[in-house]
Structures are given as structure tokens and as C-alpha cells.
Design a protein around this nucleic acid. Structure first.
Lengths: 175, 175
DNA sequence: ACGGTACATGTCAAAAATGACATGTCAAGA
DNA sequence: TCTTGACATGTCATTTTTGACATGTACCGT
């Protein structure tokens, strides 16, 4: 039940509308937790019923701004600090990487190159984010996360480059 | 619908029983895709009905060994090579890392240290795996994946170490 | 004034995933 | 002989997630 804590966490960062949360899920959280608006709006309603968030304002086009309550903050902290983390993951890309050695050389190379293009693209976006980040605005602590993203993608890029260069080597379960 | 392809991929590596697949999901695939036996057995039945896998043997305790069929192999290749990868992920640990800056210094440090312990543990396991791996047995290609796991966990370890050392710096959304 | 797009919130059926329940076998050690 | 634990397969109610449907508003450019 991480969705609840993801929402709570985003509202701890700043009060937001469901629409804004949906965008943040899609832009910043897509590599850790995704959620569609069809999940977010009902979750906000449940959270409000449980007293963990509250509506603090009504804006244009019927928008409602939610903020975390003290009870919500306590629950968020409890989850972050005391709850046993579930280390398992769901990553289609990870699964593909795991299975790629089953392909013949040409297909293997093609999929690694496709992945490499994606990683380079991510890396560029993260580097732009880093250079465009002013330490005066709120996210100074989040700079560390951008840095982590860059490092992980760099490792991935180097590894993919090695796999592509080593193509032609003995294969796995192929004939 | 990645479960189907995960099962197909594992059966491409070697024919297995549902029980063996469950173990592989838990041991090798837990960082990319998890699945319980309650999902695996019905999936095998569906895959068999679709002609993508077949029962190739009956063993002790009513066990059934499944193997991939040519149609299954074709579908696996199609998915790996032609299907558009879904790059989104679900990772509670990633979410926690994203939200950790919201905690006060003491809590933040404690959670980073908990994560560090886990990463060190993973790293030890992967390094043992690497040194115990004989290049004569089947997984020669999978050595690259172990290597990738080691590199990513090393990056994570270094980053966590830095975060712990830098503790006491200005914080995020806390007062 | 009109049309397109981004903003904004919701519902719901269907699919995927979890956790509990249920049942039984085989081997090893006490 | 008995009991424990690993092996082995299954079902099912509930929860979570997705994708489609549904509806309406505010702003911007022409």
C-alpha cells in the first residue's frame, strides 16, 4: 500500500491538487512509483476520510487543493522510519535485461542499442536538470537524487556499451 | 502483461516445474519482477491453453515439467525485440529514497544507514556469486548481469555513504 | 466568435497481484 | 514410528492497478 504514502509524501513537500499530483507522479516519480489520475482521486478521498489530508482551498475549474494533516505527517514518518521496507521491485526494463542474453547476436545487439539510446536520453535530461537547478529554490536536498540518477544511468550506459562491443561472443541458451 | 513473458523467458532458459519457476522468481528475478506461486500456476495453465508452453514430463509429488514451444519462443522474441518497452517501474525502495529528504536529520540518517546495510549485504551476495561462478556451466552470459548488479549497488553504496557523511546540512521541507 | 489545448475531476469494468486457505507427497533425522 | 520441513500444486476472495468512458472549464490565438 505504497500509493497512500507516495501521495502523503508529495503533499508533505507542498499542498497540491489531484491534477498536480498526477503530473508529479508522471514526471518525477515514474522511475519509482507510477499512478494514474484514476487511482489518485479516489486515494485522496480515502485519505481525507481517514483524516490524513484535508482540502485547504478551492481554485479555478473546480480544483481542490489538498494538504497533509498532522495525523498524515505522523503516518508518513511512521512508514518511512518504522515500517519494514519491501525491497522487491517491478521493472519491465529489468526483466528485459535479464532475458536479453537469450536472443541471438543481432537481436541482442539491437535491443541493447535501443536501451542505450534511452539511457543517453535520460542522462541528458538529468544533466540539464542538474545545471538548471538553482540552490536557492526549495529542492536543494533533491539535488542529491538527481546526482544518484545520473550515476546509475552512467553505469547503465557503460555496461550497455560494453555489451555492444563484446557482441559476437559465445551465447546463452541459443543454438 | 510481463508475467507471461517472464515465465516464457525462464522456460526458454530451461524446462521447469511451477515450483522451480516460483523459486527462480524469488531468487533471481526479485529485483526485476516478482510473482507468487498463486500467479504462476494459473499463468502456466493459460500459456499451455494458448500453445506457448507444453508439459514435457511428470515427476515426483505430482510435479509437471513445462517447456516452451516454438510458438512460445516466437512470442518471446517478438516481445523482446519488437514490443515497445514500458520503462516505468515500481519500487518501494525508490519511493522511500525519494521521500527520505523530508525527514529530520536523525531519522534521515537512520534510514540511510538501514539502506546501506541492505546494499552492503546485496553486494556481498553478488560478489560471492561472481567468484563462485564457473564459466563452464551454462550462465556465462549471465556473468554480465551479476557485474551490472555489483556496479549499481556500488553506486548506491557510495551515494548513501555520502548522504550519511553530509548529515547535518540544510534540510528539505522540515522546519 | 471559435477551436484547440491544457486544466481538472470523477467513475467503472476488467485485469493483475496478493495473501490466505487447502491439500497432499517425499525424505531425513530423532 | 513420528514429526518436521522442503517439495508441489492448486483455488479464491480481496486489493490494487489499468484503460476507457464521461464531463466540464479556462485560456490563447486566430
Amino acid at each position: 500500500m505504497s500509493l497512500r504514502h507516495a501521495v502523503l509524501g508529495l503533499l508533505e513537500r507542498r499542498p497540491s491538487t489531484g491534477y498536480e499530483l498526477t503530473q508529479t507522479f508522471d514526471r518525477s516519480l515514474r522511475t519509482s512509483w507510477q499512478a494514474r489520475h484514476s487511482q489518485i482521486y479516489p486515494e485522496l478521498a480515502k485519505l481525507e476520510a481517514a483524516g490524513l489530508v484535508e482540502v485547504v482551498g478551492h481554485g479555478a475549474r473546480g480544483s481542490k487543493t489538498y494538504a497533509i494533516t498532522p495525523a498524515g505527517r505522523a503516518e508518513l514518518r511512521r512508514w518511512l522510519v518504522e515500517a519494514q521496507p519491501d525491497r522487491s521491485q517491478r521493472s519491465e526494463s529489468g526483466l528485459r535485461l535479464f532475458l536479453t542474453p537469450l536472443l541471438d547476436q543481432a537481436d541482442r545487439r539491437a535491443t541493447y542499442e535501443r536501451d542505450l539510446a534511452h539511457v543517453e536520453h535520460e542522462l541528458t535530461a538529468l544533466e540539464e536538470l542538474r545545471s538548471g537547478m538553482e540552490p536557492t529554490t526549495d529542492p536543494e536536498v533533491f539535488a542529491a537524487q538527481v546526482e544518484l540518477g545520473i550515476r546509475i544511468n552512467s553505469v547503465l550506459r557503460d555496461w550497455l556499451l560494453e555489451q555492444i562491443e563484446t557482441a559476437g561472443e559465445p551465447e546463452g541458451a541459443d543454438q
